[in-house]
Design a binder for these strands. Sequence first.
DNA 1: TTTTGGTCGACTGCCTACAGCATACCGTTT
DNA 2: AAACGGTATGCTGTAGGCAGTCGACCAAAA
Lengths: 245, 245
Amino acid sequence: MLLSDQAGQTAAPKIPRPATLRESVIEAIQELIVSGQLKPGQHLVESELAELLGVSRQPVREALQQLSGEGWVDLHPGQGAFVHVPTVEEADQLLAVRALLETESARLAAKHAGEDGVRRLRDLCARGIAAVQSDDVDGAVATNSELHALVTALSGNKVLAELAAQVARRVRWYHTPVARQRGMASWDEHTSLIDAIEAGDERRAAKIMREHTEHTRASYMEQRENEPAEPAPAPVRRRRPRRLG
Amino acid sequence: MLLSDQAGQTAAPKIPRPATLRESVIEAIQELIVSGQLKPGQHLVESELAELLGVSRQPVREALQQLSGEGWVDLHPGQGAFVHVPTVEEADQLLAVRALLETESARLAAKHAGEDGVRRLRDLCARGIAAVQSDDVDGAVATNSELHALVTALSGNKVLAELAAQVARRVRWYHTPVARQRGMASWDEHTSLIDAIEAGDERRAAKIMREHTEHTRASYMEQRENEPAEPAPAPVRRRRPRRLG
DNA sequence: TTTTGGTCGACTGCCTACAGCATACCGTTT
DNA sequence: AAACGGTATGCTGTAGGCAGTCGACCAAAA
């Protein structure tokens, strides 16, 4: 039997490629941003990040450019990279777009998903519920992303899935802190969503997904109301001041 | 009067920044791709592009990475960049996503657009019709893009507009050749779309936009039917063969 | 003939180095 | 006191260079 005969049948082994430095740097910087070590508006000096991460400037530059494309940092030509300052308005718009993309994904998933897809959905849902019950917030958030990603994948539209994934990554930045308060309710909605997909009921799947994303959005806006404690009105320091001499 | 007083009142001067080399290279490569000088599946060798464009490898590298993020080229780690091979299936999916995004944009535009916005729409529409009547295909396509971009901008959702723009750029790659056959009909639809937006009729605006984009899609698929003359089933040459020696 | 091992060439990924620009600082002028 | 011009410096944008790696090709073995 030729090896190519079984290609695509089972999940590819996906040997853990020693990913390029650039990709590692991207993930590292994202982590620094979501964890708050890099604050919104902060000037990201290439050489400093390079030293911090133990690499040279080149991979850092490339990472910053990619991150700029995904909305994590803003690139000012000739001036450098700055951590994107997320506004409430933008979060609202982002969540609206996510709602749009995921609603359509759910509709298409209900149309195209087969038994196998539904089984994987149920599996993920169970994992998510387990995570919530054991107070594993990070795990719950991760599983939530996986589930939404799977729904978009089941839509059968790869372009749509890719776009939704991109938007979802950005949403996650805002989303993580509110995940705790949504808690279990979110997973009940997931369950009924999967029911609708299994039944092939496009309208119901779309409706549930729209309401689901709207709930998340409302939850976010509500949390924002409660803590309008913007630490600082963004003292966007564009350049490091010279050391006094 | 301080200079800052008039900031934002008139359109910013937008001094024609001698844009970074990277951006120039991006546009140059996009042009090479849409014009067909770089064929789908072709291996893009950094040093060759660098010499061709008269710059060093670095800006080329960065340009290729950004283009990969937008779906123009595929990046295979350790192997290089290849011009993306567009499939019919993908074009269909892309057009479907565009329909989704633009339909929502139209709906929101009807909700939020003011007099000024409508005036600018009518202006663009007139320019487009003039272009068609004088057989200026390139001008018509460009104006078409501008008009759609303005509709998304009038939606008031910047994230949505940005995403729609990204999708539209990719669509344009496929779209240009079919523009001729759509011709005038397209602009009649634009006119009724603007009427609906002016009237603030969300449902009608959305409906017209959906039908409009569906027409474009149907037109594309039809053209594809007539010329399934895929020159070659993508002899995806992954590496340049060694010079015989 | 098909498979296996080895060599060569080419290209990518990364690092280092340099030139130009933009900002901050500071003395001078109005 | 405020505005202006000169100067120093940190940082970006770009170039060039080196090592590692992947594929093509070829020869030998099964």
